[in-house]
Design a protein around this nucleic acid. Structure first.
Lengths: 181, 181
DNA sequence: TCGCCCACCTATCTGTTAGATATTTCTGTC
DNA sequence: GACAGAAATATCTAACAGATAGGTGGGCGA
């Protein structure tokens, strides 16, 4: 129960860019932060309501009937700053691919090969996605001052994807060796 | 709600190695799988009870009063095999470090530098841990047939840690450049 | 014009999970 | 014998995922 909600930081962060509806917050997180952060509706809406109740967000009618636009209050901006400064809490690992490979003798070499090849395809797709993000950012004039920081997150993903590819190639060689025995 | 429990696979997998108490299952997962999998007591005990009720585990008195040792039944072994063959479900990303760096302009370059340096230290510690795992495995005669598969998981961790180090160095250079502006 | 489809929008529900906490027993050491 | 730490069982509460439900508005095709 020592887990402290991280959703608040993500929601406040998204709204620090511009005022938005709950749906738009979800979309912004999915499209802009999506390569390293996820947030479900199950968290977004209760968080928005709570933060509004606590005075960290202003809420007024949106462009459509029934919609509401939220914006950061001064207190909300201060709260975001505070959250960003808090130590990062490590997230427990749960890597399903590695769990399956660990029990690879049970699973069989052929199935392992398939898993690793799938991981390779996934990593390649991720690299393509990062390239697309870079391309988009190169053409956007908006928020230019943020770009260097945003690109750090893309670079992290790229390094990770390349590591996965290198490991996958090595692993496929190892698995082939095992199959030959 | 489409999330399907992964704890069953971890618990059955651990017990496929040898019969254990609930506490020992937790320790085995923590010490042997811990570099890529985590499982809390909150899951382990209810899962053990459920799997026993379902006939996937046998349970008999342990060495100490009040303790219980669980072992895989034939049905349990078949169930593990089945679970290992199910497609891996991707785990949503939630990288607190990258979220902070994304809002690096808000946070400030100095704070970003500290975060990245901490990430570097962590990656180095992870590398040391992998080396220790390799060393331990080199001396153990037990379970030798499993070692190649287990080493694949260690190698994945090493590749990841090295990628983090490379990214961290690059990022520190970038941040220094930003600070100079 | 009408109906369908899709995007926008709000919100909840249920199952998975983390880790703190509580309690008890056993063992080793002083 | 007392104390500390490990072994052992189990639950509790909060965070979280994603499916689902319902509604509105606009565009497009028959």
């Amino acid at each position: 129960m020592a887990r402290v909600s991280q959703s608040e930081m993500a929601v406040l962060g998204a709204l620090s860019v511009r005022p938005m509806t709950g749906y738009a917050v979800r979309e912004a997180i999915r499209t802009v932060l999506g390569h390293f952060w996820n947030e479900s509706y199950g968290q977004i809406y209760p968080t928005l309501t709570r933060l509004h109740t606590e005075g960290l967000l202003d809420r007024h009618g949106g462009e459509r009937s029934g919609s509401m636009t939220y914006s950061l209050t001064t207190a909300g901006r201060a709260r975001l700053s505070e959250l960003l400064r808090q130590p990062e809490s490590p997230r427990p690992e749960r890597n399903g691919l590695l769990l399956r490979l660990f029990f690879g003798r049970e699973l069989g070499v052929d199935a392992c090969v398939e898993l690793v090849q799938a991981a390779k395809v996934d990593a390649e797709q991720r690299l393509a996605n990062y390239a697309a993000i870079r391309a988009t950012m190169a053409t956007e004039e908006e928020d230019r001052a943020h770009h260097p920081f945003w690109l750090l997150t893309v670079s992290a993903g790229e390094h990770g994807a390349r590591a996965t590819l290198a490991w996958a190639d090595e692993t496929l060689r190892t698995l082939r060796g095992l199959a030959a025995n």
